[in-house]
Design a protein around this nucleic acid. Structure first.
Lengths: 311, 311
DNA sequence: CCGCAGGGCAAGTGATGCTTATGCTGCTCG
DNA sequence: CGAGCAGCATAAGCATCACTTGCCCTGCGG
C-alpha cells in the first residue's frame, strides 16, 4: 500500500529539486527523505531520481507520479477537512424530537443559537409526546428528545438514557380575569376545568392536585395545545392548570387571563433533554447547550435548571 | 495523517457489522481490527462504533466516513494501477532516435513488436544522423538512439552511454547487373562512384577501402538515401558500397543490381542502440528487445548481434 | 589540494502495529 | 437459572518501521 506521506515527500523533492531542501521544508532530516524516496522507488518499481554527484535529477517517471498523486492527495486533504467538520459538528445531522410546547417555546431559540455557531449543521425536528419520542430514541430514529415529567407523576426513563434537565416550570392556575373565582384549588369545586387529553401526565396531575385539595375536577374541555387552553380560559369557559412554558408573560391572552402560581411543593413540571447515552453525535452537546441557552430567563414561572446531568 | 489501511478496515467492519468477520476477511486478527478502529477513532475524533454486549453498531459517523473515504480509496486504487502500468512500461513514453536506414529497415518491425506487448505505450520517433542523436541523448531529448559505426572509422561514444549492439552488416559492393565491372575494388579504378555525403562515415569508409586497394574513388553522385543509391546503380550510373541494411534481398532493384560482399576484414558496419546509462525508462529494455527482434534473420549481409551490452 | 555540499549507507532507537493471551459482558441453550 | 460462548477490549510481547545520528563517498570550487 502506497503511503500518502511518501507522495507528499516526493512532491516536495520534485518541487525543490533537492533532498536537503525538501527535508528542511518538511521538518525531516535529509536521510529520512532519502530513505522515503528509496522506499517509494522500491514500492513502485520506478526509478524516480537519477543520483548525480551534486544533487539529483527528477526522472520523467517522478514527474508523472507527482501528477498521478494529485487526485489522491487532494482526496486525502478533502477527507481530512470533512472529518474535522464531522468531528466538531460543523457539519453533520441531528434529529431532535420535541413535544409541542417545547417546539414553540424552546426549540426556535435553540436552533437559532445552534446555527449561529454551526451554520452547516442539519437539524431535523420531529414532534411527539414523550412516550413516542422515547420509543424513537430507542429505535435510533432520534438523537435527542425533549420530554417532560410532572412532579406529581414522575416517569421512569429507560435504561441507557442520559437526561439533561433544562427547565423547572411552576404549574400555574389560569382563571378568566375578573371571574371572581378562587385562586386556591379548594375553592374551585364547582368550576369547569380545561385540561389536556385523558391519560396524559398533565391531566393526571390535575386530578391528583384536586384530589389532594379535596375537590373533584370537572373537566369540560380538553386540548393538548396550551394556546387553545388559554384562549378557552380567556373566553371564560373554565379554569386550567398549565406549566410555566404554557403561559408566559407577553402571551396574547395575557390581559384576559389571571395567572397564579400553585403553592404545592410538587406543583411543577420538568423539561429535560433525553438521549441514548451511547449516542456520540458530536452535535449532541452543542444542541443541549443551545437548548439551555434558549430557556427564557425573565419568565417568573420558568426556572432554568442547573447544569445537572443524570445518566 | 489518516492511514488508507484504516479506511479499508473501517469499510470492511461497517459492511460486515463485526470485527471478527472483518478480521477474517482482511486476514487480520480481531484484536488488530479493534486496535485499528480505536486508532481511527482517536485520530478522527469520531466515535465510529457503539460497543454493545454482543457486537457493535456502526455510528452514523462511521457510515459517513465510509462514504467520505470512497473517493480517497478510489484514487489510491487508481494510482496503484497507473503506477503498475508505468513500472511495467505498459503506458509511458519513449523517445527513439534513428538514422534513416534504420528507420526504414528496423524501426517499423520493432514498433509493431513493441505495441503488441505494450499497446498503450507512446513512442515518438526522431530522425537524425548519429552525431545529432547523441547530442539529443545527452540533452535528455531522447531516451534511446539507433546509431552506426563503420569498422573503418570507429567512433568514440560519450561517457555514461550504454551501448547495445544490434546488427553487424557486411559492406556490399553494388554494380549494375551485366556491366562487366570487376567485383574487386582494385579493378574499379575508372568507375564512377556513388556514395553518401562528404564527411559521413560511409563516405570516409569508401575512401579508406579504395585507398587500401590502391585505387582512388571518383565520386560522381552523393545521396544519404540508400534507396536512391541503389536506383542510381541500377540505372548504370556507377557503383556503390552500401551496408547490408541498405541492400536487402527483395529490394525492388534486386534484378538490376549485382551485389557482392566485400571480403575485407573491417568491411562492416555496426548498428547499435545507445542510451544514457542512468536512464531508467522502463520501456528501454522492451524497446531494445523489440529492436533485436526486428533484425532480419534471412538476410545474407545482415548478422544479428549477440546479446552483448557495453556500458 | 583541501573544504564543503549533497546524497548514500549503517547503526541505534523509539514508535508502530501486529500477535497471543486474558478479561469482561450479556446472550443462549440445556 | 447457570454454564458455555460469542464478541470486543486490553495487556504484554515482539517484529518491523521509520526517523535520527554519524560516517562515507563523490565532485565541485576556492
Amino acid at each position: 500500500m502506497l503511503k500518502p506521506q511518501h507522495l507528499l515527500t516526493l512532491r516536495a523533492v520534485v518541487r525543490t529539486g533537492s533532498f536537503v531542501i525538501a527535508a528542511r521544508d518538511l521538518g525531516y532530516t535529509a536521510s529520512a527523505i532519502s530513505q522515503q524516496i528509496s522506499a517509494l522507488e522500491k514500492e513502485t518499481g520506478l526509478v524516480l531520481f537519477e543520483r548525480e554527484a551534486h544533487g539529483i535529477r527528477a526522472t520523467a517517471a517522478a514527474h508523472r507520479l507527482v501528477d498521478l498523486s494529485v487526485p489522491v492527495l487532494a482526496a486525502m486533504d478533502d477527507l481530512g477537512h470533512q472529518v474535522h467538520e464531522l468531528a466538531t459538528g460543523a457539519t453533520g445531522r441531528l434529529r431532535l424530537g420535541s413535544f409541542p410546547t417545547a417546539s414553540v417555546r424552546l426549540v426556535p431559540a435553540a436552533l437559532s443559537a445552534l446555527t449561529a455557531t454551526h451554520p452547516r449543521a442539519q437539524i431535523r425536528l420531529e414532534e411527539g409526546e414523550p412516550d413516542e419520542l422515547v420509543d424513537a430514541l430507542n429505535d435510533g430514529d432520534l438523537d435527542v428528545a425533549l420530554v417532560y415529567e410532572y412532579g406529581l407523576s414522575p416517569r421512569q426513563w429507560p435504561d441507557g438514557m442520559a437526561r439533561h434537565h433544562l427547565v423547572r416550570e411552576d404549574l400555574v392556575l389560569l382563571r378568566p380575569r375578573g371571574s371572581g373565582l378562587s385562586s386556591r384549588l379548594a375553592g374551585l369545586s364547582r368550576t369547569r376545568w380545561i385540561t389536556s387529553s385523558e391519560g396524559t401526565a398533565g391531566a393526571l396531575s390535575l386530578t391528583r392536585l384536586c384530589a389532594a385539595a379535596g375537590v373533584e375536577a370537572a373537566v369540560a374541555f380538553r386540548s393538548n395545545n396550551y394556546d387553545v387552553v388559554r384562549e378557552l380560559v380567556s373566553a371564560g369557559l373554565g379554569v386550567a392548570i398549565v406549566p410555566g412554558l404554557g403561559h408566559s408573560p407577553g402571551d396574547s391572552t395575557g390581559d384576559a387571563v389571571e395567572a397564579t402560581r400553585l403553592a404545592q411543593r410538587s406543583a411543577f413540571r420538568r423539561v429535560m433533554a433525553l438521549h441514548r447515552s451511547e449516542n456520540s453525535n458530536p452535535l449532541l452537546g452543542t444542541m443541549i447547550r443551545s437548548l439551555r441557552s434558549a430557556v427564557p430567563a425573565e419568565d417568573p414561572y420558568v426556572h432554568p435548571a442547573q447544569d445537572e446531568q443524570t445518566a
